[in-house]
């Protein structure tokens, strides 16, 4: 039902459309079937499936130090690094300087990065929804305080505060990192939701609900919330991207989880081990490539949601 409501209450479109383009009766012609969105979801799903099912076919213990020969290149390639070494099928993506198998590393590492993003983004969004609705709907003193706090929090570069925290904590779990990151993930959704709630508060159907005696809670979550869904999704993905970005930043500085393999952590060890100068491109290149694909997928999802939420962008892209 939510999609139908969005079409009706979305920004009015000045461009003239033919009946065929309007296509209200074609169930496949919904804005949710957006090419960019589907492509992005596909990419992310592939990486996740690779991480989940990869464990069934590949021994993830190989991701630990010293479980494999050192410095092997990917299969079929030869390096002259410390004697002539040729890659074998036993380690198809090669190994690094302390004997970790690259394939096992990325199978274990890729879902970890997502996990951080999803936990941090969920908690951040939860806070954002709570604060944004309070600020936009309740207003008054609460609005002043929330706005002030989000103005303050949004300008603090979160990575720097996280660096300070992490350099003291050192031994951390994935959930701890995710929760720490989520402390900085609420201001953007708060602002966004507040702005949307402020516009919707004055709209006809909310006034109508008020007149019919609906409770504040019911107006907030049953009337306004469904219309915010594309914004919430876009904001969620944007937030998850930011959280993964922060996590990767910490990991590449060597401040990520120490015992659990992560993609950023692999890059950190590669920089430490001078992989660039030793031409061990697979060591830093494979996690970099995987992260890059992951971020392209997230960007596509984000752009897709933008087009769903803003019909003008959609139209001119055709």
């Amino acid at each position: 039902m939510a999609t139908a409501q969005i079409q009706e209450s979305g920004p009015s479109n000045p461009a003239v459309r033919t009946a065929k383009q309007m296509g209200r009766f074609n169930r496949w012609d919904t804005p949710w079937l957006n090419t960019k969105l589907l492509l992005g979801v596909g990419i992310i799903a592939l990486i996740l499936l690779f991480g989940i099912f990869g464990r069934l076919f590949w021994d993830t213990k190989l991701a630990l130090t010293g479980k494999s020969p050192l410095n092997l290149p990917p299969v079929g390639l030869t390096t002259t690094l410390g004697g002539k070494l040729t890659g074998t099928w036993a380690h198809p993506l090669g190994t690094e300087s302390s004997g970790r198998d690259m394939l096992a590393l990325i199978i274990v590492g890729a879902p970890n990065s997502f996990l951080i993003g999803i936990i941090a983004s969920t908690v951040g969004m939860g806070l954002g929804i709570l604060l944004g609705f309070t600020s936009g709907f309740v207003g008054g003193r609460a609005d002043d305080i929330i706005r002030l706090l989000s103005d303050v929090a949004i300008t603090i570069p979160s990575l720097l505060v996280l660096i300070v925290i992490q350099s003291l904590l050192r031994q951390v779990e994935i959930t701890t990192i995710a929760l720490l990151i989520s402390l900085f993930a609420w201001p953007t959704p708060t602002r966004l939701i507040r702005a949307q709630v402020l516009t919707m508060r004055e709209s006809g159907y909310v006034q109508m609900a008020k007149l019919s005696g609906a409770s504040t809670f019911s107006i907030m979550f049953r009337e306004i919330m469904p219309n915010l869904i594309p914004y919430l999704f876009a904001s969620f993905i944007g937030n998850a991207t930011g959280a993964i970005l922060a996590a990767v930043g910490l990991e590449t500085l060597g401040l990520g989880p120490q015992r659990i393999p992560t993609l950023g952590g692999t890059i950190y060890f590669a920089i430490q081990g001078a992989a660039l100068l030793r031409n061990m491109w697979w060591w830093w290149g494979i996690p970099t490539l995987l992260l890059a694909i992951m971020f392209v997928g997230l960007l596509l999802i984000n752009l897709g949601f933008d087009e769903i939420a803003n019909p003008r962008l959609r139209q001119s892209s055709q």
């Binding site: 991207t241 970005l245 990767v248 930043g249 590449t252 890059i267 920089i271 660039l276 491109w281 830093w284 290149g285 970099t288 992260l291 890059a292 971020f295 392209v296 997230l298 960007l299 984000n302």
Partner: peptide, 16 residues
């Protein structure tokens, strides 16, 4: 294509 990538990844790629 590179938009929203962590800058350190671009740095490694360009350095290489």
């Amino acid at each position: 294509m590179f938009t929203s990538l962590p800058s350190i990844l671009a740095a490694l790629f360009l350095a290489y």
